[in-house]
């Protein structure tokens, strides 16, 4: 059931890959703009590069997440899906995993932009990808749940970030810290604790949001 739901989401995302490109360009443009906020001081840009990367990713993620229930809202497709003899939980996890994969991909695509613009090169690429995967997991679990709500109301573009941003403060904090430790070096060996924090945030919200999703979509 879960694999069927996931396949449907991935197929949908593949068919709307122009959307992914647009979001990527948006994220890259945001990274470009952040450097104007600081000024052309290479050392400072490098210092803040992790924060900028995650802010860019966060802003782009609201676009991706807000769109993720677009297909279900047309022709009352959501009701059709709920009538299937399938657990709504499978629908949720299918969508959340698809969003997660897309955001991870987006994060990986933004790394070269960050490296070029902020001179924030690193050789620990697998570690960086791990942090991006864990951080975007923290964004997509509550993000998918809130998107299911806000997709059905007026002014969803405002409401989704309003609900999501305060919630993901711990995930954002840990991701930025971990990323900047990768880029700037980790003399105090703090990496582990931030990874643990991220992983526990993910574990809590992936289970809690899955539990509550049934309440949100059922009439």
């Amino acid at each position: 059931m879960l694999t069927a739901a996931l396949r449907k989401e991935l197929l949908l995302q593949w068919r709307s890959r122009a959307q992914f490109m647009a979001v990527f360009v948006f994220g890259a443009a945001a990274l470009l703009l952040f450097s104007f906020a600081v000024g052309p001081v290479a050392e400072m840009l490098r210092q803040f590069s992790a924060g900028f990367l995650w802010l860019g990713l966060l802003l782009s993620s609201t676009l991706t997440l807000a769109e993720s229930f677009h297909a279900e809202m047309e022709n009352r497709a959501m009701e059709g899906l709920l009538l299937l003899p399938a657990n709504p939980r499978a629908l949720y996890y299918g969508k959340a995993i698809a969003n997660w994969l897309q955001l991870t991909l987006l994060g990986i695509a933004l790394i070269p932009v960050m490296v070029v613009l902020y001179d924030a090169g690193t050789t620990r690429i697998p570690m960086l990808i791990l942090v991006i995967a864990l951080g975007t997991a923290g964004l997509s679990a509550p993000g998918t749940l809130y998107a299911a709500m806000t997709a059905q109301v007026r002014s969803k573009q405002t409401l989704l970030p309003l609900l999501l941003f305060p919630l993901i403060v711990p995930a954002l904090l840990a991701s930025v810290k971990a990323t900047s430790l990768i880029i700037l070096g980790d003399p105090m060996n703090q990496m582990r604790s931030w990874i643990v924090l991220l992983a526990s945030f993910d574990a809590i919200y992936w289970s809690l949001c899955g539990l509550l999703f049934g309440n949100v979509v059922e009439e």
Partner: peptide
């Protein structure tokens, strides 16, 4: 639902 999710967040924050 949102209240429960936000409340769980408080200790983590």
């Amino acid at each position: 639902v949102a209240t429960i999710i936000a409340s769980v967040d408080v200790p983590i924050v």
